[in-house]
């Protein structure tokens, strides 16, 4: 309990030591704090929403105040509950090992890879950007080698691009080379 004392609301959740059951109070306490902060922001910022002249009816501020109030109250109540040691059931999924420690490294690598691909799409085209993202994610999740994830991602990205762009007319930048190569479609 004492470790959570005076935690700033914007601090990153502390990495859980491997092997320890995740869901220790600290991280969720930060979440509850951020939620309360969001509620506060909603209530405060709602006051600055411009209200047009005809103010004889309920304007655009009313619902934000309502939502902000509920969010603030929920954040505080949840914070108190978590502080007292309440824990939610972590999400279940077929591929999740409930006993495994949290691999923050995998989360970080995947996040960076996804961000990079978002910024690269308009530069090198969707297929190439996605191939790099795909390979990095697969590698971070333990796929063997570097060549195989790259080839798998490349084939998947190009096939998906051709299906969606050429057959379904979805707008996706293909990159100079691929657009030139498939021009005859």
């Amino acid at each position: 309990m004492s470790t959570a004392q005076g935690l700033p609301p914007d601090a990153a959740p502390e990495p859980t030591p491997p092997g320890e059951q995740p869901g220790r109070n600290t991280g969720e306490l930060v979440m509850a704090g951020l939620l309360a902060a969001l509620g506060l922001y909603l209530v405060l910022d709602a006051g600055s929403i411009a209200v047009p002249g005809s103010s004889n009816q309920v304007g655009p501020r009313f619902f934000p105040y309502l939502v902000g109030g509920v969010v603030l109250a929920t954040g505080i109540a949840l914070g108190v509950r978590v502080w007292r040691g309440d824990q939610g059931p972590a999400d279940e999924s077929e591929d999740v090992d409930p006993t495994a420690g949290t691999s923050w490294q995998a989360v970080a690598i995947i996040s960076v890879a996804f961000l990079a691909h978002a910024l690269l799409i308009n530069v090198v085209g969707w297929p190439l950007a996605v191939t790099l993202m795909f390979a990095t994610v697969a590698w971070a999740l333990g796929a063997r080698g570097i060549v195989r994830p790259l080839i798998a991602g490349g084939i998947a990205a190009v096939v998906v691009w051709i299906v969606f762009v050429k057959a379904l007319n979805v707008a996706l930048p293909g990159g100079t080379l691929l657009e030139w190569a498939t021009d005859w479609f």
Binding site: D95, I110, F114, H117, A118, W126, V130, M133, F134, A135, V137, A138, W139, A140, L141, G142, A143, P149, A152, G153, A156, A157, V160, F164, V170, L172
Partner: peptide, 13 residues
């Protein structure tokens, strides 16, 4: 590894 990489690919799409 390929499954979840593929899910992210379709999420992006």
């Amino acid at each position: 590894p390929y499954l979840y990489a593929g899910i992210l690919m379709f999420a992006s799409l």
